[in-house]
Design a protein around this nucleic acid. Sequence first.
DNA 1: CTCACATTGTGAATCCATTCACAGATAGGT
DNA 2: ACCTATCTGTGAATGGATTCACAATGTGAG
Lengths: 219, 219
Amino acid sequence: MAEPIPIRQTAHRIPVQTIGRLSLYRRLLLELSAGGMRQIYSHQLASAAVATPAQVRRDLMMIGFTGSPRKGYAVDELIAAVNGVLAQSVETSVALVGVGNLGRAILAYYTNRQPWVRFVAAFDRDPDKANRIIHGCRVYPFEQAEEVLGREGIRAAVIAVPAAEAQRVADRLALAGVRSFLNFAPVRLHLPTGAFVDDMDMSTALDRVAYYARQQRQT
Amino acid sequence: MAEPIPIRQTAHRIPVQTIGRLSLYRRLLLELSAGGMRQIYSHQLASAAVATPAQVRRDLMMIGFTGSPRKGYAVDELIAAVNGVLAQSVETSVALVGVGNLGRAILAYYTNRQPWVRFVAAFDRDPDKANRIIHGCRVYPFEQAEEVLGREGIRAAVIAVPAAEAQRVADRLALAGVRSFLNFAPVRLHLPTGAFVDDMDMSTALDRVAYYARQQRQT
DNA sequence: CTCACATTGTGAATCCATTCACAGATAGGT
DNA sequence: ACCTATCTGTGAATGGATTCACAATGTGAG
Ligand SMILES: NC(=O)c1ccc[n+]([C@@H]2O[C@H](COP(=O)([O-])OP(=O)(O)OC[C@H]3O[C@@H](n4cnc5c(N)ncnc54)[C@H](O)[C@@H]3O)[C@@H](O)[C@H]2O)c1
Ligand SMILES: NC(=O)c1ccc[n+]([C@@H]2O[C@H](COP(=O)([O-])OP(=O)(O)OC[C@H]3O[C@@H](n4cnc5c(N)ncnc54)[C@H](O)[C@@H]3O)[C@@H](O)[C@H]2O)c1
């Protein structure tokens, strides 16, 4: 019993899809753990996540987590193992750029939720929004971006400015050391290789949903 | 010159990814067309969409659109062709369930934008929000869902209610004839086969972004 | 203590989007 | 009118995630 968190190897490259599912598994497991569940089978977790049991086992294999035949996986140990991979024991500082309708909804939502990511600074070029505290997050004028990002050691940012501004904003953030972006603007960002971008393109999503409302198919 | 919109076959099944990119291409092309561009090469469109030229040509092949060597693709004809596939000449009626922070941001944004999808009804169980008009969209109490969805012939919906309510809401919408969902709640929905779900899971996206802020890799 | 069998861990097979690579086509130059 | 450079259209190759399928495991029943 020397190993509190049974991880074997995190050596190989974990696919992005797996990272996403691990986030989902953790959320589901936290809920189940709070409800008193101590052990879980791959098929149970799969059902909750709308995936296949083989998929779940493969994902856990990627992070080197091991269960036991007939008993399944220990819920709390699995949560700890996922924590070990996703949030390497430290909380991640995130910046928000663009405190508009969407930006404010995001700040409101992530205050006191998901404690492993924290919005430590927001930026807006509108003087009415800058130099205030919104939902517990200090809003700076965008001119101070470099200074604040450097001071706080921020390497991840959420972009919620209008489409026409997004590339300009991204360029400046990238220069200031941000390497990972969550982009809500309906454009694709050109960034130096090595940077990571996750596009949350609601307009495209709406078009897909509208398309399949007429078709019969399924994802 | 007898063919206004050169489409050959839409017979085969178009991958979801292609549908998504077509939406993006259309958005980019509308901008470029407004800027006066009449012809475009696959490598130019690819660059704007952050994709490869082969990808663009393959996508256009999927919808049977044809260009010409040395001249490339006719911008306005291509827009028309994409319109023909994505929004089959009719505008799609969409419902929104959950008029909270996120729901209101969405309604505000899609008023007078993307005219091929229209939010024709919103629902909320909070009596303070029901029976009002928010950003041009009538908000109904959720009890009237079946009646309104039927009357308006709505087959697509955006779910923006708290996670704990999402499955319940989805079940009821599905029974009322909705077959295509854009889900913002951080849970996976269980729906009858044949239904389409697009998850916009910001929490998972944030976790991915936080993860890659530490790693070096790229998607 | 032994046995039976549901479940895990994983190599191999499969599937499917993406990329390669090139034959075919054509606009523009001479 | 012909030639050339360059782009399109697409069959074939690639690559990587997912699924299959089964041997190994160890728990819980008797
Ligand atoms: N609201 C939605 O539901 C929704 C839906 C789909 C896409 N989006 C996208 O999300 C982004 C934000 O949408 P929104 O509705 O919040 O817009 P918004 O207009 O309400 O807010 C934009 C904010 O960005 C600020 N801003 C503009 N340029 C800036 C710059 N260069 N630097 C810093 N701040 C700047 C503005 O002052 C404003 O506060 C847009 O790209 C939009 O296309 C939003
Ligand atoms: N706001 C964000 O930035 C954000 C980020 C990530 C995820 N989400 C998800 O999006 C969803 C909405 O978020 P929000 O911030 O707008 O929440 P919110 O609490 O501001 O709004 C939720 C709305 O849904 C209504 N509602 C609740 N139960 C309902 C039911 N059964 N039928 C009809 N209406 C009902 C409530 O009255 C409220 O108006 C949530 O699932 C949340 O997890 C939001």
